[in-house]
């Protein structure tokens, strides 16, 4: 989490006036073109959700990724401009969080859990097989980023689906109870531009759409259906199902509930 972008933000601050456009000024101009009026309006609507503007930074960085597929220098300048922060402040945040990608991301981000439990259940083997199949390592992309069939591979920390181990995610949708074969099949399908169905969650779109949702926008076509997409799984309801079969219940709720009195003021 301590890696830095390969440029400094001080040049932006130290640029003396009246000289020919610096790299950062060119970037800002490029940002103008990349982040058009629609994105600006969305950035403002993110700010409006919060009592204080700066809280909008994390969703806004997701918004930047929805436009460019990763967090770029222009993207950070854009956030800084919207929130009246320095680019250094934005940079410090963008480099802290794993989900902000510093390299262009593929249409599909494949995250394989290699934390202890998943690894012991086969996750390490899955990661290795996918890495060989794609010919890439951690946070590298097979194919041309942004183009159909491009796949970025990463190993992920615990994805909170341990009862489905080993798991992977594609664009943060769950593919549970994986084997090396099933994972390879999924990734090969992605490379062909197909969209295999996740075991829990919504049908895959692409990484940029995913990031738009993480920015809090669920207004795209199919968003209602996406929310309704099944997340039912035997593992989730195993205890509840067993209890129903055996007739086990929590104690019955009483007819009348007595509430404590209002405490006296001290």
């Amino acid at each position: 989490m301590t890696e830095q972008f390969d440029y400094t933000t001080t040049e932006h601050v130290l640029t003396p006036g009246g000289q020919s456009p610096t790299e950062s000024e060119e970037r800002a101009a490029a940002g103008e073109a990349v982040f058009g009026e629609r994105v600006r309006a969305e950035a403002r609507s993110i700010i409006e959700r919060y009592p204080e503007a700066r809280s909008a930074l994390l969703p806004m960085l997701h918004l930047v990724q929805s436009v460019q597929g990763h967090v770029t220098a222009e993207g950070m300048s854009f956030c800084a401009e919207q929130l009246a922060l320095s680019t250094a402040e934005v940079n410090a945040v963008a480099t802290f969080y794993t989900m902000y990608k510093r390299q262009p991301c593929g249409r599909f981000l494949v995250s394989v859990c290699t934390n202890t439990l998943c690894a012991a259940m086969g996750g390490d083997g899955i990661y290795r097989a996918l890495s060989e199949e794609l010919g890439v390592g951690h946070e590298e992309t097979a194919g041309t980023p942004g183009e159909e069939g491009s796949v970025t591979l990463e190993h992920a920390e615990c994805l909170a689906a341990c009862d489905f181990a080993p798991v992977l995610q594609v664009n943060y949708e769950y593919f549970d109870n994986q084997t090396t074969e099933s994972a390879l099949e999924t990734v090969r399908a992605l490379r062909r531009g197909e969209r295999p169905l996740p075991t829990r969650g919504a049908p895959l779109t692409d990484f940029r759409d995913t990031e738009r949702q993480l920015a809090g926008f669920f207004d795209g076509p199919g968003s209602e259906e996406a929310a309704e997409a099944s997340a039912a799984a035997p593992e989730t309801v195993r205890g509840a199902e067993l209890a129903r079969e055996r007739g086990w219940n929590a104690p019955p709720v009483p007819d009348e509930v007595e509430f404590p009195p209002i405490p006296e003021k001290k």
Binding site: G239, A243, G247, W248, N249, A250, P252
Partner: peptide, 20 residues
Amino acid sequence: APDGTAREAAGSPLTPVLTR
């Protein structure tokens, strides 16, 4: 609610409340 008494229910190995 279960057919049995509260006491029996309290002895259930599983008590689905949140997961029910």
